[in-house]
Amino acid sequence: MDMKAFWDQNKIWLSIVLGVLVLVAIGYSRDVANDTNITVAVLSASLRASTPLVLGALCGILCERSGIVNIGIEGQILVAAFVSFVSYSRFGDSLGAESVMALPLALLMGLLSGAAMGWLLAFMSVTLKLDQIIGGTVINILALGITGYYYQQGLLVPSKLQAIEIPLLSQIPVLGPVFFNNGVLTYLTLILIVSMHFVLYRTVWGLRTRAVGEHPRAADTVGINVYYVRYVNVIAGGVLAGLAGSYLVLEAVGTFERGMSSGRGFVALAVMLFGKRTPFGAWGAALLFGFASALQTQLQFFGTIDIPHQFIGMLPYVLTILVLAGFVGRTRDPKALAQPYSKE
């Protein structure tokens, strides 16, 4: 491939990657000099922060590729986080703290609640043909209500998912401890990114999904059930958002706090757009956003620069606006996005 064309097409990405690499190199050289481990800490924190974002973005990809705007990802994440937390606490009580089944069951409940929220969005936007932005808003406000009303202080969960070190691979300097010493859900997310790419571009289902998002009438004419494809994708998206919520509670934080999704569902939409609605693109974007939020918790990465934490805390949100404003590349929407489909 022509080098210049490649540069022109990807200059934003390449500059960002280069910039991050330079930052990491500076940090790492300082680590070596001072015998500290800050670089690995920052990169691990980036990966941890990127996991719910990429899951939310994958949810957005499934929905939008089939023509449904989902701004309810935030609420879906929140509900699933809450349901996993409560069920983990209940199962932990009833099965005993040392039971190995409590965690998987809690995860299952989280995924099911995500599916239920996905179904609600599909019901509103496909069956009732509501304005999809309003449908998503209903989900977000409902999520705040449900999680607020049923939240009880003092619920405890046994423990969170522990990191599993993968032998040999985790010995690679810097990258090893970052990528190969994580919890199960992080590994699952990495697998999901790859399989999502495969499903979207290499299977009949993926082709149908994209067809329904681009030209539902044509898809209908060749016998594709538009409603069915949209329902399945939006519900599957809900499951992915549910996984993001379960990840927050079961692997990242280990407890539930009110409003703990704190805008991740919306940032995920920016991640999706930044990644041009492709799974791998979304992963790269999520890592970048994750890096931005990791800097907040790992301030010492900068050395001793005195920046108020509020300013670093809003970095992901500012980045989201910049992405949406197209300062970092524009993407084409699926043609039938946000338009309800009616059979004639």
């Binding site: 919306f266 940032v267 509020q310 949100y317 606006i321 949406l324």
Partner: peptide, 27 residues
């Protein structure tokens, strides 16, 4: 302005601006 000049949908930009306002006023 973001919507007219860049096409960024106001639903997401306004939500992001809520978080930014929260941070700035808190500071």
């Amino acid at each position: 302005a973001l919507r007219t000049y860049t096409g960024a949908h106001e639903v997401i930009t306004t939500i992001m601006l809520n978080y930014i306002a929260l941070n700035i006023t808190d500071y």
